[in-house]
């Protein structure tokens, strides 16, 4: 087991997440793809932390999990608020800034 194994897993997940964000139109699925990206980064952080024998990575995984939770709460709150006024969940139907 080397660091490269984990890094490859991490970048594959990252690529899938980016593809999801760019290709999908449903806001909820876009948010889920963002979570995938977060997780791929977490894997690489934890892997670096283990192989470099330092705690920085582990601590930042904890912080990033926390931030991700906050991000999801806000994102879904915005989504619910938008859905109430527009009745739309696709990103290309939500391209006007005016309320």
């Amino acid at each position: 087991m080397t660091l490269t194994h984990y890094l490859i897993l991490s970048f594959i997940l990252f690529g899938i997440g980016v593809a999801g964000v760019l290709v999908r139109r449903n806001v909820i699925v876009v948010l889920m793809s963002l979570e995938l990206i977060f997780n791929s980064v977490n894997i690489s952080l934890a892997a670096f932390s283990y192989y470099l024998q330092s705690l920085n990575g582990t601590v930042f995984v904890i912080l990033s999990i926390t931030v991700a939770a906050a991000e999801v709460a806000i994102g879904l709150a915005i989504l619910v608020a938008v859905y109430r006024t527009r009745k739309a969940v696709n990103v290309d139907e939500l391209d006007e800034m005016k309320g």
Partner: peptide
Amino acid sequence: IFVLLRSPFLAAAQ
């Protein structure tokens, strides 16, 4: 995978 990376705390938090 976090468990494999010897950080059970991260796994539990995840």
